[in-house]
Structure formats: structure tokens, C-alpha cells
Design a protein around this nucleic acid. Sequence first.
DNA 1: TCACACACCCACACACCAA
DNA 2: GTTGGTGTGTGGGTGTGTG
Length: 757
Amino acid sequence: MSQPDDFETPSTNAFEDALEHQSQHYNNEGSDARNDKGASDKDEGAVSANDDQPGIFQDLSFFIAQDEGRQELEQQVSSHGGTVLPELPSGKSNKEFVVSTVNTSDLPTVTPTYIKTCCENNVLMKVQSYLVPYNEFRAVIDTQLRNEGGEKPAAPVASVAPAVPAAPAVPAAPAVPEAPAVPEASAAPATPAGDASESPKEPAENTSTKPNEESGATADASHPPGTSEGPGALVTGESDPGLKDQGAGARRESFDSAKDSVSGEESDVIKTPVAPSPPPARQPSTSHNKSSFTEEEDEFILDVVRKNPTRRTTHTLFDEISHYVPKHTGNSIRHRYRVYLAKRLNFVYEVDSAGKLIRDENGDLIKTTVLPKSLKNKFTASEDYALSVQVKKQFYCDIYQKDPDSGESLVRDMNASDGDHKGSFATDGDEHQNEGPSFKDFRVGERRGPVPREFFKKYADENPNHTENAWRDRFRKFLLTFGIDRYIEYYENEIAQNRVPQAMKNMTNRPKRPGVPTPGNYNSFAKKIKTLSQQQQQQAAAIIAANGGAIDPAALALAVPEGDFLDEETLNFISGLRRDLSKIESAGGAAFAYPQEIAESIRNHFTNEEAQFDEIDPDKISFPPALATNELFMPQFFNFSSTREFLDKINEVISRDYEPSQAEKLVQDLCDDVGVRKTFSTSILTALSGDLMVFPRYFLCMFHFGSNPPMNVPGIWTREDDEMLRTGEESNVKKLTQKHGAGRIEMRKRFIASDLV
DNA sequence: TCACACACCCACACACCAA
DNA sequence: GTTGGTGTGTGGGTGTGTG
């Protein structure tokens, strides 16, 4: 099984000659991914490296068709042996490229990222993933301009070229394949004859062969001729025929028919990225310019995936990304990643076992080509077999009080060990003691338990590839359904026949859940409904339930008028909030990366201010404070017993290790753990220019002085402060410097410049 | 016509809870 | 403490409409 984003192949494939005429892989001095600068993503160091070697762009020519970063791109091309063309190539040579984020010339065009990526790794990458499709629309416009102006523009796309995104630095280290969890996972999956589990014709034929009763899967279940003997034999077929009948087609029809009716509102949501400064104008990179993905969006998606590698296959990650890429749904972004962008992933940032980003001694993120494990692991045949054997042993011990391996009596052992009889070893009146068949001849039969919780706990400790719950569930839903004896027999038989055993599958048979089908389906409707009020959600759920689970937005709209999905003000507010978070996050390394002297200045000021503003005794503030309203805080806030307890929790949350790009996570944690509404914590973050050190001070002063925001508190920027700063008047700046300190002034200026205020 | 964006599907891993 | 019921959302897709 090869996942699209596995590095086993794509990574290595990526390091191939772009034009199949230059096979040298100028490996970057054996430096591995860990030596990269990590989070900065902007290290151009590789550009000038290996000057003594022939350049990777030797024999290739590039016309840089955009002003943005032209000089740098030209330098990179030339310093790597390429030729910079003064004008558009003729199109007659396959060694000439245009470099631009849009293609208006119908000539082979690569994105600037291609040049940067090649240079950073000193390797000529495959061009396929970096080719920009021809954009006829723009070409027509350009032609018109040319005709009107009577001259050919030197750089057809220069005026609209967006800022070149930081190029991903691709490690040149050989791709390290992820070790399979179990040996046969990598074995050739040669499906044995008679194993219908892999057969496409199976479902229809086997639907009737699967009795719903679990007793249908017993140890001695015989297989009728022509049916499967493999572990997938008990195929459930359609889980809910009733739903199915009205399902896909009918449901989709109703959905689609109504989709148009809400599309107007959809575009409102998209347009909302509120004044004064809309997000960067979209640059169509393909001819499908209405909703196509731009280079910036692609890079953003890749960057987020790199920083959340364990969630790379989830739906929720892409749904979250869709908050910041408002023209696309979670579904489409996920598809975009899986089908197109995964090939360009090339590296991810190293994370610990909990999925948190790891930094090196310099504080930089560590690039790696080894993908971490994703959140859920499939069970393999050997895991199924091992579990079956272990459960069988458990039952054997339980019944015969004998160690199945040594044959020694457990009763004697237990007597010797202080007679501490555990429940699972209790002698069954009907059962034999110290007698019975050999373990090999023993059959579990219909026995289903008891299996002590301790068994799964211990098993999970020894086999950490799955959790205790997961092992137990596998036992319940698969082993018991298929039959323990039967699977052991099947597995051993397959091995004996020199075939590759298959894991059990198709053992689950659960009815479809009613309600909003969000999991695994983050479409625009799901997005919309998540923003409904609780009452509206209940209304919606009722309608959906009455519809047999089918979404009928047309009917839904009757109960929840389109205009009521969100009022304009709320819509604007949420859009603004998302924009703020998006900017804070995307600005990440830039907005928060202040020069040393600014950081130092801020630290000094903070220390001086502590005595005046942070020494307020929280125990003297009654809880909940008068200012704490439902608009600002969630119900759990009011569960705190004191202001001190609340502030302690605030301190605990903000001292967690958040990346600058994890503003949303911080806001979410503050909401979940402390009960600060997201809107409120976002506004505070904005008022603090993202300086978390001042966060507790905000609440302390707010509660103490009874003012939100607290006025005249260093580090907390009010609207008036921002206006004063914007005027740039010396007297104003002087006042602000007295209040916030010079460091924070610089910090705020950057915040304002990044349009974060 | 076709590539792409987006919707949708579904088995099942993992989790939690009530009896 | 064990067990069954079931919620959630991952993982790996496929189907469909449209520019």
C-alpha cells in the first residue's frame, strides 16, 4: 500500500531530472534534512553552495516573467548554471521555461517555487508538479493590452504577480521509508485464490451469506462451495438498505437542487473578508479561474500539513485549513492535497509522539523525510493472529488452570503466590482442572469471555501499535464475529500454503447515523450548518431526521430562512475574526519574529511593569467579577472557584508550547480549558500584539479596574492607542512610548503593517 | 473533452458510557 | 469489573458537475 504522501517513492522520484537529460543528482554535501534551517523556510544558503560543481540548471534557460523576486530568481538561475532569458522563449526548445505563477504565454511555465526548491536542494526536481497551466483568459487580456499599447510588455504577468511564497526547502537526504508495523505489511499482497475478501464481485454475492447473528461465525463454520474462505467472507453488504434506497442518488439530487439556492449566500461568505484590507487577490493559476487553487494557497496547505504531519490524512485538518482558504471547502482542500500536493510535500517537520513540533537547539523546526504515524493504524493479519492466539491462551488458562506453553499448573503457582486468586483464573465448577487437551487441540468454540480489562491493558502495553480500547474493539467486533478458532486455522493454513494471510475485514455492520453527516464530509453545507445557533441546529437536525437522514436544504430553508443562517453583522464579525486569526497564524514567523533588541526592550519593560500591574492580589477580586458576562466567557468559566484559580489556569494554558502558527489552537484551548470565548481571546491577542506574557495581566487589570479593555496598562493596546500610533505625530508617539515602551511600539507597528490590527 | 474542484461514501480504529 | 451499545472521525477512497 502506498499512500500518496509517503516518502518511499514520491520523495525519491521528486529528485529526478526535469528534462530527462541531466541525471546527476548533486546531492547537497550529504547534509541531511535535520541540518536545514527549519521554520525559517527562507534560507537561501543553498543557492550559492557547490559553486565548484556544474550547475543543476546547466543547459536550461528561464525567462523570469514577474517583478516580484525577479532579481533573486535570476541570481538563483545563473548561480546554478542556468541561463536567464531576456525575453519570452521561442517555445521551440524543451529546455526553455517561463517562471511565473500564471501562464499567459502558452509556453512551458514553472512556478518560482520550482526554482527555489531546486536551488535549496541543489537538485533538479521534476517539473510536472510545478508546471502552470495555460490561462487563456489572461492571455487574451494581455493580447488586448499589447494591441492597445502597441508594444509587448516585458513581463506579461508582472503587475499581478503575488508575493512569492517562501519556497519549501527540500532535503536531499534519501527518503527513509516508514517501517511497517508488522513484517508482512510490506509483503506482496498476492491475494490467494478463493479469498474473496479482495474480490470486487464479493458484496452483492455475499450479502446473503452474512447472517446478522454473530453466531454465524463460529469456529466450525463451513463455507458453502463458491463462497469465500478468507477472513472477509462474512461480508455484511449494505448496512442500511432503507437509507441506501433513498440515499446517494435521491439525496444528492435534493442536495444539488438546493445547492444553487444557497450559492448566493456562499459567495457572500467568501466575499466577506472584510475591509479595510481584503486578503491578497487571488491569482488564477489555471484556466479554471473561478475556484482554482493558487500557488499561495497550495503553499499554505503544504505548510500546514508539514506542521501537522500526523493529521495529514484527516478530514478535520483540512476543514480547519478551509477556515483560512475561504473559497474552498475542507473536502476540496483535502482532495487537492491528496491528489496534487502530496507529491510536493517532500518534507515535514519532526514531531514528538504526541504530534507536537520539535525544535532543535537553535529553536528551529526540524525537517524530516520520515512521516510520523498517522492517528489510526489498520490491523494487520499478524496482529489479528497474535491477538487470537493470546485470547485463546487466556481462555485456556482460565478453563484448565494450566500454562498453555509449559503445561504447568497455575493453581499450584497461585497457591504458592499467597493464594491471590484473580477473577480470570477462578476455577469454573464445570471445567476441568489440570486436565484437558493440549493447547493446539483446544478450541475456543462459542466462548466470548470473560476477558478481564487487565488483559487488554497488558496487551496494549506490550503491543503499543494500538490502544487498549482498539485491541478490545478488534476482539469484540472482529475476532468474536469471525471466530477465534477459525481465524487461527485460516492464518496457519495460509502460511502453510505459502500464501499471504489477510486481516479480517467487513465485520462491522452498523446503521447509518442520523443527523448532519459531517465526519468525513466537510462540504460547504456542513461548514454552514456548523455556524448555526443551537436552536437552529436542532431545527435542522429535526428536519434531517424527518427526512430519513437526508439533507434537503430546500426544506431546511423553509424552517431556517437563508438569511437566518447568519446575520450580516455576525457574518462580518466571524469573517473578521477568522481573518485575524488567519493573519496571526500565517504571519507566524514574520509578525512574531521580532529582532533581538525589540524583544529585549519588551522584556525589560515587562519586568519593570510587573510590580505595578502584575502584583494585584487576585484573592481580593471576587469571583466571578462583575465584568465576566456570557458574551465573553463560556459556562465552564463560572465553574472556577476563585479569580486566582482562573488565573492559574490561564497561566498554565499560555505556558504550553504553542507555535506562532498555532494561534487557533491557543484560542481553542483557552475556550475549552478556561472558558474564554474565542472571540474574546482573539480580541485580547490582537490588543496584546500577540504578546502572551501580558495575557494574565489583561484579565487581572480588567477584573481589578473593572474595565474592558483595561486602560492605561502597558502592553494592552486600545483603539485610541492605535489611532495615535497611526498618526505618527511625535507627541503621540512620545506618549505611547511612555505607556508601552519603545519595543512594543515597534512591535505594534509591525502588527499594523501586517494588517493584524 | 477533460482536468479539476467539490461532494460523498463507508469500513473501522478508537473512545466513552450505561447496564 | 465486564460487556454491549454506540459516538466520533480517520483513512482511503469514488462519484459528479463544471469551467
